[in-house]
Nucleic acid binder design. Structure first.
Lengths: 372, 372
DNA sequence: ATTTAGCACTCCATCAAGTCGAGTGCCAGA
DNA sequence: TCTGGCACTCGACTTGATGGAGTGCTAAAT
């Protein structure tokens, strides 16, 4: 060791310069180049000593004996955690984000726009999860009978988003019955969040269950008739609630993301290996693993970064993922981010992702219907 | 020329063998190999003469002077048009197609399943367009007012498919008015095809227009009052029709396709060139050009093939596209196909695509709600 | 007239050897 | 603690040699 205190300010500064240079050039950086760049007036030999220390610490790595040094994952990690000087977002980019997101009509549209902007402005891949359902408000629900005992449920949330689902009911309902059920549900649940509706529905059904068992009647018809007397709940309403329960239960299938600009990744030399590229793209279309990763990012609010193997997901081994959760009315509802090679300009990407998340959150805010 | 009649049976047979061998090996095939394979008992020298003729005709091509021959696009074309002996579909594949498609719940689902099966069973990329709107029947329409003068239109087609669109109306309508309009439209248009509805709506509006101009009244209110007297059409109904017109006009945006298994293409050596691959994948995400191509295929019914540059679309230069339109009740409603390298096993892919198209058409047939 | 054998030739792929330059590690001296 | 110097390593690139696969052409054979 050439230093009593190995990781002193100087070695950190050199590490920083090395990483910055490697990020911009993509070539292993040697001691001479580093000596020239730095204003420390050190000779290449001294730099070499420092480099040897950094290598011992696992922060840099030499591809072969006579090449320069390249940052390792730990090196990058140290860099983004404490060395990095973030560059403010370029005003051009800010304007584009602003314009793009303020024009979006509905949530799905906004998410698509955000993803496209992320990828176009960074020249990497952009990913945005669809906002969580929990927060959305039920606006209107409607039933339509299909063949057999299937019913098409259509519900509108948040003013303009339409969802639909087919449920299988226990018996065949007439159009009038369905209309009535919809009217009933609209009258009591409209305006509540989907999550609240789900809970209310469950409670209602549970209460009903208890009432039946409490009666200890052997004949269910009797119990029903007994209950029918009470004005709080009728058979029709019960059917309605049951249908609502079917409609809203575990509707997580749409838990999806929008990914754009994957093709940008094909330009990077570190991903030109066909095998890596293939497994990466397979991961993209599989979606499942990516969703898992993004879910993790949602827990932490603010910017979250996975560098190389840190994600624990083999397909991402040579990629970094910079994410930020986005929120509507102070509640985290989704994640967005940028996927690129480990060698990316973190100092620009991090603020970029951060701002995009904030703007997307603002664009999704139902209160500010007027453009931002 | 070694033959009075250059393209005789023998040379065609040799071309066929050459292409078959090239498809299976991927290597330029030389005269000796061809001589051994064929049961013609010809010497390599003779084969060489034939090859020279085929090269003159532009059917094969030599990468360099001392390599074997490789089929050209024209060679492939001749091969698939008249030389090919199609292999019947493997029963295993047939079963899988059958099972997969018969389980699909709605049209979108079926299209997705078809695409996945196409790609998985061929180990190439599968593409399926969503069925055309023209054929689908209007089942139910509904209006929901949003903020300002925007109205959310929800309409259900073909028993279970939900579509929605936001239209901007000339004035703000009350919920009751919207309900009334929907009732009116449902009563007269329900059961008709979207195309028919569109036409009927246009006619209605045109008739209305004529009536107004024919009156030659300077005061429009007068004209309206005059018209209101006639029982055929009231102001409310007119509003309804106008809204329907807005809702159904040029709703081509969703004219989309489902593409799966793109990553399979990364395994092929002819596409391992990063530049080609990138432009191909960009074409996939752009969609526009691919749609144009698929639209062309829709015109011809039955199997259609684009080999290499035949598509006229640069991104597809090194790919072939084998498509077939699929029909519901004898009307072509969409296209599906397989995208792979020009060097693909046409004799298996062609019947495969053909059968898949037929099965998808059957699965989409509204009459056979019961599994095939 | 067609087919074949033979021969010269071309071109690619592979390997070995050599050179160059960038960069390192280490040691001795400032 | 830093620096200059030196030997060394390794990859990138070039060159040349070799072998093999395959062709084109011509002259002989069928």
């Amino acid at each position: 060791m050439s230093n009593t205190q190995v990781l002193n300010g100087r070695s950190l500064q050199l590490l920083k310069m090395l990483i910055e240079r490697y990020i911009s050039d993509g070539q292993p950086v040697g001691s001479r180049a580093l000596a020239k760049d730095s204003d420390l007036n050190l000779s290449p030999a001294t730099i070499r000593n420092v480099m040897a220390d950094l290598e011992d610490l696992g922060l840099v790595h030499s591809p072969h004996t006579s090449a320069g040094r390249v940052p390792t994952v730990s090196g990058y990690r140290l860099f983004v955690d404490s060395l990095l000087t973030v560059k403010p977002l370029e005003s051009k980019d800010l304007t584009l984000l602003h314009q793009g997101l303020s024009l979006s009509e509905d949530a799905h549209d906004a998410v698509g726009v955000a993803s496209r902007l992320l990828s176009e402005l960074t020249q990497m891949a952009g990913v945005v999860t669809l906002p969580k359902r929990e927060l959305v408000c039920l606006r209107h629900i409607e039933f339509l009978s299909l063949s057999h005992n299937r019913v098409l449920v259509i519900f509108v949330t948040n003013e303009q988003e339409v969802h639909n689902k087919i449920i299988h009911t226990s018996r065949i309902f007439s159009a009038a019955e369905l209309q009535q059920a919809a009217n009933y549900l609209n009258s009591i649940y409209s305006g509540l969040s989907l999550d609240a509706v789900r809970k209310a529905v469950l409670k209602e059904l549970q209460g009903d269950q208890e009432r039946i068992t409490n009666l200890s009647a052997t004949d269910v018809h009797l119990a029903e008739r007994a209950r029918a007397g009470k004005p709080e709940i009728s058979q029709g309403m019960l059917d309605a609630v049951k249908m609502a329960q079917l409609a809203f239960q575990q509707d997580r299938e749409k838990d999806d993301y929008v990914l754009t600009g994957e093709t940008n990744l094909m330009g990077f030399s570190e991903l030109s290996n066909m095998e890596r590229l293939k497994s990466l793209f397979e991961a993209f279309s599989q979606k499942q693993g990516v969703i898992h990763l993004l879910d993790q990012c949602m827990k932490a609010d603010g910017v979250q970064i996975f560098i190389g193997e840190e994600s624990g997901y083999r397909a991402f081994d040579h990629c970094s993922l910079v994410t930020s959760s986005y929120s509507v009315s102070d509640e985290v509802v989704g994640v967005l981010g940028v996927i690129g090679p480990t060698r990316m300009a973190y100092e620009k990407i991090i603020p970029f992702v951060d701002v995009t998340a904030k703007l997307l959150g603002a664009a999704l805010n139902p209160k500010s219907t007027t453009p931002l």
